[in-house]
Design a protein around this nucleic acid. Structure first.
Lengths: 340, 340
DNA sequence: CTGAAAGCGCTTACAG
DNA sequence: CTGAAAGCGCTTACAG
């Protein structure tokens, strides 16, 4: 490696000051156009690389935004990330991604790392059990936060997510209208706000229709395709076997459908299944999945926009912002068999 | 926000020098244990945050590693990333992720960003058409690189991937042994080394068995579930309709199976389908997918280990390192119908 | 075992 | 329109 090239290398070669070089490279109108072009051309020629650490030490702006989610392998988050990415690209922010796998510990480490790197802000889907204090830690150190998909009690941080209880109600109502009376609820737990909201939406819809909500028709836990697949057996062994299942998300629904098909059942005919999120995959599953669109695109876009606004100290909304979900009816739901 | 807390804040409060504080915080044995403890306790108490930008400016080590892949939403990369993540965690490196979506331009921007941030190294699955020069740019600026999944001609950078032509041969041989004679090849292009290798493995296996390789039995392109789903129609319209399909990867295979099932066919019975990668999903697909294990875990682990070694200037392997794939037979393949 | 001082590579008032 | 100088917050020889 040759000698390190820095601002002063250019300054000396061109017989100007580093201040001029610095301004020229950033297209400052304070520098004469000819000088500016000369500097930029020479910088390009010798392969100058801007040292952001040095600049950021000086300006205390890093151009880095952190994003923490449960698991980027989850297509639900992946779809949100994509829209965050395209929004942040626009404002030239680099983003650092991390999974917390629902470990508050791991999440705190990441926040600490972002603080050390001088990140300008953070978008997070908080881990189960995140204390308000952890969010405040970021904000207190001049790193504004925005929450997605889940909320945290005790903070007024802007927070974007779908209206889960309403959405699950939509799916449940749909099954009830088709004539189902015994409807199970599969996946999720009471440990997250989302889990509580979705189950509440299901309960309320059942109540409204005067149908019995049975605790033993709830199979808690599954949130992945594999877990949904494995839940098929438990579902088939449920007392007074239900004719339909409201699933926590599309992954669980697709896994469950695969498991039921393996056991020789036909979805739509023998059982009806609904998902949640409307992932790209829902439409091409076999059978095509009836599900609730959860506005991933919107959530990502609005979260990123809001964070950028907060970073630039523009006023923004605060607190919970609900996106209204929509039911997308496909082939995985139908009227129950008449003989039951 | 209160006054910014820095090393000197602690030094003044405790009546020691910043040098001592700096050493104490990093557990240097040069500092007396009592002093060390006193410093650390006080730093914790007042909520001191280590400024990595300042440290890194001084030491020219950032603790950042970049990872660029085509698309993290692709479960194949997601599985590799997971193993990179757990390996990097061990050496306390923060990693920054970026998708290049096969844009050489976007990839170059990211390398430039990493250079500006003073990243210690980069792991990349190079975009289609990546010139050797782009890899050299990183290395010339003291940022060692390691390649995964794809290679780039003209560089000796360590490069980890599965033996694609051998693996595709395995899948093709399996179909031939089952008695298939008309076998299509679906997905991928000649623009990547992987694409060329996989198609070559298929060709060679067909040749060895004395079977005809027909260009019109190759459906190029699809690499996603959706594309595989859409390719079902093209497959069904192939001249002298094949009885089996060797697919580019599991996503294409699963999509294709869904498409064929939608058209009323039964996989295993009417057509045999093989995948590639052995994603977690392959085992729970319906029917369970016969596929080729591609060692994602291994690739990620070895790539990360090698990069860390290079960063620490330890000697490492160079050039292409092939991981040997294995055939996993499941339910999506069977003997062709006797009447054909 | 501890301290004083220089320097990493930028940007930002300030002066001219 | 341009330059000289200070300073962002660390770490690292060097001296004691």
């Amino acid at each position: 490696m040759a000698q390190k090239i820095k601002l002063s290398t250019i300054a000396e070669a061109l017989g100007v000051s580093t201040a001029t070089v610095s301004l020229a490279l950033r297209d400052s109108p304070l520098v004469a156009e000819t000088t500016r072009e000369r500097v930029k051309a020479y910088a390009r020629e010798i392969g100058y690389i801007y040292n952001r650490r040095a600049a950021s030490l000086r300006t205390s702006r890093s151009g880095i935004v952190g994003v923490v989610v449960h698991d980027i392998m989850n297509p639900f988050f992946a779809e949100i990330l994509k829209s965050i990415e395209s929004e942040l690209d626009r404002s030239k922010q680099t983003f650092i991604l991390s999974n917390h796998y629902d470990s508050v510990e791991k999440q705190r480490d990441f926040i600490e790392t972002l603080l050390q790197l001088g990140a300008d802000g953070v978008i997070m889907s908080p881990a189960i059990g995140t204390p308000a204090e952890d969010i405040k830690l970021a904000e207190r150190n001049a790193m504004p936060a925005v929450l997605i998909a889940r909320s945290v009690d005790g903070v007024s941080t802007p927070s974007f997510r779908g209206d889960d209880s309403f959405g699950t109600g939509l799916a449940t109502d749909h099954l009830i209208e088709l004539g189902h009376k015994r409807i199970a609820h599969i996946g999720g737990t009471d440990q997250t706000s989302t889990g509580r909201d979705r189950y509440a939406g299901y309960r309320q819809a059942m109540d409204r229709a005067g149908l019995k909500v049975r605790e033993d028709w709830r199979i808690s836990g599954p949130r992945t395709k594999l877990a949904g697949f494995e839940a098929a057996e438990a579902f088939l062994n449920l007392p007074d076997r239900p004719t339909a299942a409201v699933c926590w998300n599309d992954l669980v629904a697709i896994g469950l459908m695969n498991g039921l098909i393996r056991s020789g059942y036909s979805i739509g005919e023998d059982f009806s299944v609904t998902g949640y999120d409307d992932l790209q995959e829902a439409a091409i599953a076999t059978p095509a999945l009836t599900t609730v669109w959860n506005g991933q695109r919107e959530v990502g876009r609005m979260a990123a926009k809001t964070l950028v606004a907060r970073i630039n100290e523009h006023p923004t909304v605060t607190g919970l912002q609900l996106i209204s979900p929509e039911l997308h009816v496909r082939k995985s739901t139908a009227a129950p068999k008449p003989d039951r």
